[in-house]
Design a protein around this nucleic acid. Sequence first.
DNA 1: GTTGAACTATTCAACGAATGAACTATAGCA
DNA 2: TGCTATAGTTCATTCGTTGAATAGTTCAAC
Lengths: 146, 146
Amino acid sequence: MDEQTLKQAIERYSAAMFTVNRRFNAIVRELMPEELTVDQYYILSSIRSQGQCTSSELADIFCVGKSSITAIIARLFDKRWIRRIPDEKDRRVIYLSLTEEGEKLAAEIDLKIEGLMGNYLNRFTDEEAQRFLETYEKLANVLLET
Amino acid sequence: MDEQTLKQAIERYSAAMFTVNRRFNAIVRELMPEELTVDQYYILSSIRSQGQCTSSELADIFCVGKSSITAIIARLFDKRWIRRIPDEKDRRVIYLSLTEEGEKLAAEIDLKIEGLMGNYLNRFTDEEAQRFLETYEKLANVLLET
DNA sequence: GTTGAACTATTCAACGAATGAACTATAGCA
DNA sequence: TGCTATAGTTCATTCGTTGAATAGTTCAAC
């Protein structure tokens, strides 16, 4: 690929990424219940998929400082969607997990988002979707290495 | 595709999207100069690619309210990276364009990001990258229709 | 055993981004 | 003319984020 073609590809790539992210985010925001922000949902969802995790782990996953996580967790804790469970061995660490209400809330939204994404997935053939997913995951892994 | 496979695909999709967005955003943030946030750069970049545009157009593109744009523009204007040019026909509208310094700053960062993305693109074959881009743009268009 | 380095989580002040309602000014149509 | 729609701003409020400072804990080396 020559210089110029590469530049154009990157340009198109940036544009597509920007549009998809912004629009998708806006649509997901519409799905959120009154009391929950999109970021808060992602935190709930992340804890849920791991069953249990720590603030530091979340900070790594979300690529933000630990104090950001502390703030979000505090809001979710106040609303009784999250439990804090001190580790018995290492008294520095506090495990986070969902309460029953948190579990229910996350499951509800997951279902909505699943439906949403299912609708978009319909627009593509199985093969196209499959290929796309594979490359996307490959990209995610490259970014995880860094 | 049966129910269960679909659900798994969506799950993998969500995970990849999340990872790519978060990590990419964090890396881009590292590239920013002290005085500029990522969002501010995207605004500069958007104005630059259009040459000239209005607040309302930016609000649509970024999927946020107009008052958000007003705030960001105010910061960029204070730093002399943006010009406000009143429309002569319709005195309600104000066109935004980059100053020379704004142009220079945006070009500088564009180059950095281009280099960054070029590095990642290297990891994929031309064909894989091409296919991925096409599907990505198709998805962006689907989201634009909504 | 004590000390010191490393680590976990929290607090705090400050800032940027976003919302939504209220407002100003202008345009354009009936 | 007067009504309605539109473009942009202002304001109070909330959320997410940063980075520095802090408290408490672990662990390994001395």
